[in-house]
Design a protein around this nucleic acid. Structure first.
Lengths: 339, 339
DNA sequence: TTGAAAGCGCTAACAC
DNA sequence: GTGTTAGCGCTTTCAA
């Protein structure tokens, strides 16, 4: 599983080092270093000679050595639950857009929603002495939390503000999101409301939304009519199957809240397939504001979250050395045609 | 834009080094190193003392230093066009699944489908002296190609085999994919076939599929009835709008080939909204085999590609030091209900 | 089986 | 403005 032979017919690779450049330019190493990093002072003549030498030799600075020699690294460790979920993809995109303009580089790990995997990743990323970490959510294993605190790295926890953060926190209240969704349905006159959700043990933010949702129903004197929680990650299929089971079991539902838009789209497709009129026969409410859900024949009523901005803000605060803080970016209720 | 002050109230971070561990265990540094890497020989007694000392001190090995001291790094540079596109997300997931079982770590960059950006990324990733690179497709800028070749790193180019690769190539023929799609439509009796595509200048693989598609039509004595190419990245909306324009402009179309499933879903939603019967009034054919497209009221007819496997195979060949080779994983025509 | 010592390629004082 | 000199924290000979 490790690479010993670098494949066939490979010329042994001899890298160009700073001292090669310095020799070629007939200056000292430190002078070459200063020119190449554009720091400290040097004459124009020296500058051009060093630059030319570096160019001629095809010099690529070795960041490993550079990082070791200086103090701080320019790596940001990013740990997300999944790539398949567009939400994290967009957060990443936002973060990357910011990091691209700096000389930070991101090292990424995927947890697959497993805390133990998050812990493993944090510990192995730590070995690279990252200057910062970007994580999803506020819940981490005790060991991960300890390591993070001890690491001296800045930490940005994104997408959730319901709880205590370690350092920088950028997101919105998932509980409030759930409450807002419930209030909307109640205001629209729906009374027999169901829930179709996924894997709440793993997706803690979905669990918080559900909690907020149920709470707001209770405040309105209602209770959940019924719910169907599938034990898998969210998907269109899971939403479709979940709603099917709910409908087959329980009659009289007038609205369903889904754990997210993927699930809700599955529900919507089921309604189309079964000839249920939406929202007359059944109202549907999602969460996320997925692109695709805006272009179905009836746009989905949902909550849109500024994921790209969350990634951007998180990364920017992280690399700019901003003080610890909580940034609530809020969310927006999107009135579609399904609720 | 750089981090000087590490935030408020921060205890200056003093990392534990190998020499701390060695001192604590009362052994030499090299002995401690051997134990911790489980390499070379040492007594059981030494082993337990070093392990205990490391544990007690909370030692995290510094990979930066380790990499510098040894020769090869354990980093894999991954460069993908986009996260938003589920295809790359899944390739990444596959690659990561493999890398997780090794002690390689991935450093990721996103090009946004721009070759200049790919070039920038390759050059900045090179500074980390990665042992390998994973790239999308076979087309890179000349400068990027030169740098990659000169780097001595192994290279895996994924998702396309229509062309010359640098080292390891894992994917399928996009042209063949286009041809297979055309043949299917022709075999089904469709004759007035249109195309709705996106941004072919940037998405070179979509361009190859289109080429194969047109070619197979020609072989069948047909030619493209009309086409609409939007100058944006693919999206549901672009597919919807593109098809709308095509239909408004040209009558008599009996089938449309889309540049991918996102676009095709947009087209499908347009048909639903306009009350066009699919496939009777208009047949639709996509590309990708997206999950969601299997759960619409009528599953989309499309081509499924084994993206996860591509990522896995690419990563595995890369880290195992396999010889340069081309792996064709093929694709599968999925007969849905839309064509 | 163990330790001392010499780097890996670079940056950061500090002289000059 | 420029060069010399120590390291950064580790791995790797090489003796012991």
């Amino acid at each position: 599983m490790t690479d010993d032979d670098a494949g066939p017919n490979r010329i042994p690779f001899v890298p160009v080092t700073l001292s090669d450049v310095a020799r070629e330019a007939r200056v000292g190493e430190s002078t070459a270093s200063r020119v190449l990093r554009n720091q400290g002072s040097f004459s124009e003549r020296t500058r051009s000679r060093v630059k030319a030498a570096a160019e001629r030799l095809g010099y690529v600075p070795n960041r490993i050595a550079g990082t070791l020699a200086s103090t701080g690294s320019r790596l940001i460790g990013i740990v997300v639950p999944s790539f398949a979920n567009i939400v994290f993809a967009e957060v990443l995109r936002g973060a990357n857009a910011v990091l691209d303009d700096t000389d930070f580089q991101s090292v990424i790990g995927v947890t697959d929603y497993r805390q133990e995997q998050e812990e493993r990743l944090v510990s192995s990323l730590l070995a690279w002495r990252p200057a910062g970490f970007i994580l999803a959510g506020l819940e981490h294993s005790p060991a991960a939390t300890t390591m993070l605190k001890a690491s001296g790295a800045r930490i940005a926890e994104l997408l959730d503000i319901d709880g205590a953060g370690l350092d920088i926190v950028v997101g919105f209240s998932n509980e409030a999101a759930g409450r807002a969704s419930a209030r909307h349905l109640v205001a629209r006159g729906y009374r027999r409301i169901g829930y179709v959700g996924h894997d709440l043990d793993r997706d803690l933010r979905a669990a918080k939304r559900f909690r907020g949702f149920a709470q707001a129903l209770a405040e309105a004197g209602l209770s959940l009519h019924d719910r169907e929680v599938v034990g898998q990650p969210s998907s269109v299929e899971a939403g479709k199957d979940g709603l099917a089971r709910l409908l087959d079991r329980r009659s009289g539902l007038d609205a369903v809240y889904f754990s997210n838009d993927d699930m809700a789209l599955g529900g919507y497709f089921l309604c189309l397939a079964r000839g249920l009129a939406v929202p007359r026969d059944l109202a549907l409410f999602g969460y996320n504001g997925l692109d695709i859900a805006r272009h179905t024949p009836q746009p989905l009523t949902t909550l849109r979250t500024p994921r790209l901005r969350i990634g951007e803000i998180g990364a920017r605060l992280l690399v700019s050395g901003a003080p610890a803080q909580v940034v609530d970016v809020g969310f927006e209720l999107v009135e579609g045609a399904t609720a």
